[in-house]
Design a protein around this nucleic acid. Sequence first.
DNA 1: CCGTAATGTCAAAAGTATTTTACATTCAGA
DNA 2: TCTGAATGTAAAATACTTTTGACATTACGG
Lengths: 71, 71
Amino acid sequence: MNIMKNNIRELRKEKNYRQEDLATALGVTRQTINAIENDKYDPTLLLAFKLANILGTTVDKLFAPDPEILK
Amino acid sequence: MNIMKNNIRELRKEKNYRQEDLATALGVTRQTINAIENDKYDPTLLLAFKLANILGTTVDKLFAPDPEILK
DNA sequence: CCGTAATGTCAAAAGTATTTTACATTCAGA
DNA sequence: TCTGAATGTAAAATACTTTTGACATTACGG
């Protein structure tokens, strides 16, 4: 199960991208973007950096792990 | 293949932790810490956050993807 | 309302991260 | 030099991420 929050959808919409636009820009599939936006699983670290980069933010701002989990 | 750089080893030594100390503190195995320090593979996003947290830094400062790869 | 674009979802397969167990190498101190 | 501690490494098993292909649902402009 996945405990990370993210605001990819909000930032994506600000840029008027479709899930598919983001996906092709990052070299992944639309299903991957959809799954991450809907918290099905976390992206790899590399994909997290690519997402932050294209959305004009940082990994630390884009994702927020449950504070409970940061022992 | 793994294209991410990190300075976990340096920060770990500043804190006088052994690989095993970091591992048990984060709930992973020593082999995992060793593999990440030696760039065998990237950690998951969650483990990256845990590492940054315990080492007193941020994911963005702790890891640096090859700029080439950030299209 | 109708058509179509966008999003949601699913199952199977492939790729990658992590664990476990085990052994090898390096290095500092007694 | 000898010992023990720390690190490096490897293979097999398991878990998780991503792809592929396909179909369902939602939302919106005409």
